[in-house]
Amino acid sequence: MAELHGESPLAARTETLADSSVPGALQLSEVAFTAQVALRVDPKSPAAERIGTAVGTMLPNQPGQVARTEQLQILWMGPDEWLLVGPEGSAERIQATLTEALGEEHGSVVDVSGNRTIVEVTGPKSRELLAKGCALDLHRRSFASDQCAQTLLARAGVVLLCRDTERPSFWIFVRASFARYLADWLADAAAEYRV
């Protein structure tokens, strides 16, 4: 649906990411144009409960927790803050659902789809690659499937999402303006695996 969305932040780095991939070790690619909606609401409020019902899962209440529905991933971003990630083109629908469930109660729903793009990193070398720039403990026992963390990767702020522990797979949410820097950094850090 490129005509719907024009140019993704890493369109100019598609080849860089592809070239940095090493079969059997590492796969890098952009996941572009996901719908991303920022939600702020008091987790103890009736509105939060209504939102849970409306989206089909309770908002995760543990730091770093991710809830999933068929369509959505809901990332814990703060004690009253979540990032809802859905398929391309669903931002309007997600906002409408949230706004309706929120009703008159205090909260905020903001379309931030353009704010960040996503780099997907999969393969056995993923953790080592990320460890070159991320100080979090990414060990399978410490950072497992459906966990997320806001942290630094190299010199960029990112949201890191573990998609799969056993066959390591991560999503790196990065600000659009930082995306090329991060892609270049990842390519540099992955260069040794191609040798």
């Binding site: 932040p9 070159k132 190299a154 010199r155 960029a156 303006s177 930082f178």
Partner: peptide
């Protein structure tokens, strides 16, 4: 380390950079 040259500090660009 690798924090040198182009990677010394993040370069932020806009959608119209190219």
């Amino acid at each position: 380390g690798r924090d040198r040259g182009d990677l010394y500090d993040p370069v932020r660009v806009t959608a119209m950079h190219d």
